[in-house]
Design a protein around this nucleic acid. Sequence first.
DNA 1: TTGTAAGCGTTATCAC
DNA 2: GTGATAACGCTTACAA
Lengths: 355, 355
Amino acid sequence: MASNPPASSPAIVRVTVHDVARAAGVSIGTVSRVVNGAPTVKAEARERVNRAIAELGWSPSVAAQAMRGVSTRMVGFIFSDIRNPLYAAMVKGAEDVFTQNGYLLVVASSDGDPEREMALIDLFSRRKAEGLLFTVEQESHAGVRKSLAAARIPTVLLERELSPAVAAVGADHYSGTRQAVEYLLGLGHRRIALLSGGRNNRVGRDRLRGVMDAHRAAGVTLDESLLRVESFSSDYAFRQTQLLLSLPQPPTALIAAGMHLLSGVLPAVRMKGLRIPQDLSLIASNDSPLAQLATPSISVIRYDAYALGREAALLLLHKLKAGEDAQEVRVEVPTELLIRESCAAPSNQAVIASA
Amino acid sequence: MASNPPASSPAIVRVTVHDVARAAGVSIGTVSRVVNGAPTVKAEARERVNRAIAELGWSPSVAAQAMRGVSTRMVGFIFSDIRNPLYAAMVKGAEDVFTQNGYLLVVASSDGDPEREMALIDLFSRRKAEGLLFTVEQESHAGVRKSLAAARIPTVLLERELSPAVAAVGADHYSGTRQAVEYLLGLGHRRIALLSGGRNNRVGRDRLRGVMDAHRAAGVTLDESLLRVESFSSDYAFRQTQLLLSLPQPPTALIAAGMHLLSGVLPAVRMKGLRIPQDLSLIASNDSPLAQLATPSISVIRYDAYALGREAALLLLHKLKAGEDAQEVRVEVPTELLIRESCAAPSNQAVIASA
DNA sequence: TTGTAAGCGTTATCAC
DNA sequence: GTGATAACGCTTACAA
């Protein structure tokens, strides 16, 4: 009795190829051949091995396989914060694709900190992630770019771009914003404000370009003091809306391009006692339950973040297969303008004031 | 020239302990001791090794370490869909804790499918995840419970419970719901409807208990036909709200307990031409931009999903450290009732009708 | 204090 | 066809 193994240790015995080989009466080489689908195994031996595997409930050790250079089938996804519903949708889109292809998706939040981005790239590199989905915070950050290059991981950017070119998937914010501005211009607005973030990335630049090109094409002069593009936060939107509406010549229309901005704009507008759309026309982006069900409902520039995630995953999968000679392409996801109740022609008073 | 290695293969040489040892003029054993912080290394040797590591940019192979049984420092999180903002917040809370402790969090969506939950548990087990955060879909599903037991991974449940007991963290939905019902009862409501999901899990059961206990304590008979607890989807909420409001004796108050329900309830109420709170009092859960900024603003039962994720991560970390002799405790996260503009005393007409 | 060598569980290359 | 056996890069006794 005293010589028994202590009852408290449940003797968790790892079953290995050796156990399977012994049970099947073959060598470990044959077991390996069977599980890796080598053709040079007699049907009878294959049969015995498979039975032994089933009986013992064995499956190859991922760690040991990784050491032998077998692919980890793991990809990483770095973005600032999963609590942004757009990222959540992208993650789900990517996850669905990767899962279907036997890959594991590891997500990591950077909180928008380049240092943390670098640490995460390094982490994924050390863990032998095979690919990377990445929404880099600052496209121009030298350290991050160096880390990314050093890691030598096939990468697809989401909503960002880098040069020299890295494969990327992004929504067509240029067209979306331009279309929105053209719509407002068509209603008669001449003072259109833009609230957005992303001075340092493609999303912000594309929106800015969309606003400018729409004005230029319509022959309308753009008042650059109406452009507030420093942050995507709700607080920023609240403050800037207050500031904008207190201007001697306030805007008659406002585009809030960023997931969290609408919930900053609305309180500011209400505090000011203004009515939408009579006193201020409003277009938000992306779509949300709030935009749909606010009173009045809010027109939005919409795109499918889930599809964006899917496309990015598909593109990365393609790069993984193509290897060295993969092209660094860019995929665009369309945007659309959803007209609801938040826009109208500017009031006479506003038009006169801005004349 | 012809004998040169082909230019197309950039000769990616993995640097190993051996390279470091050679560069530092020591043996691999010493290198290993240095990186693992063994005290028995002369300062001078340690110095040389560290310099060599820095020069060569070496870091230990995670795969090789895993094979030697070194912890993978990886934990998994299984839930139905990351697009639910509550899960996103929980993930962020957990991620922040794990990151700080050198762990990698791998998230996986099950889409609420028990088969997929089982596959994921198996996957995490094979990948040697050290711990698991899990929001099981159906607490009573035998297959999932068996898989979980077989995997032998320390687990913490979020918003769920299992018997025999597994450590768990959940919001205090019982008190939250009970408080909400008491508030409505106090306003004079006698026909209070509950919209929720989760017949198969603790969240749903706790809410049901909260509703019943509040009625019992107040001596008010509960009309069970007002309880619609089959799904958390927006569509379900829309349809059931229509049905409820078409009843001969419709409810005078409605609790929509589930993240996506409010955006189903609101359109249904509006289509019916009813006013909130004059014709119908409404309480939602959890809080959201929509609830805050709808007109009128919606009272909510609120809890901090981020904190819930944090607590769960902390608890799992604790279990990981405690090992065998960890207690399977349960942690409760408080809920609070946020009063806004969506509740009022029932109209005379309604009171008379229900009398 | 340090070097040597034996594994860890695979896969792949040999002979047989 | 199949069985030995040598890596893979690390950790850890055990020797020195």
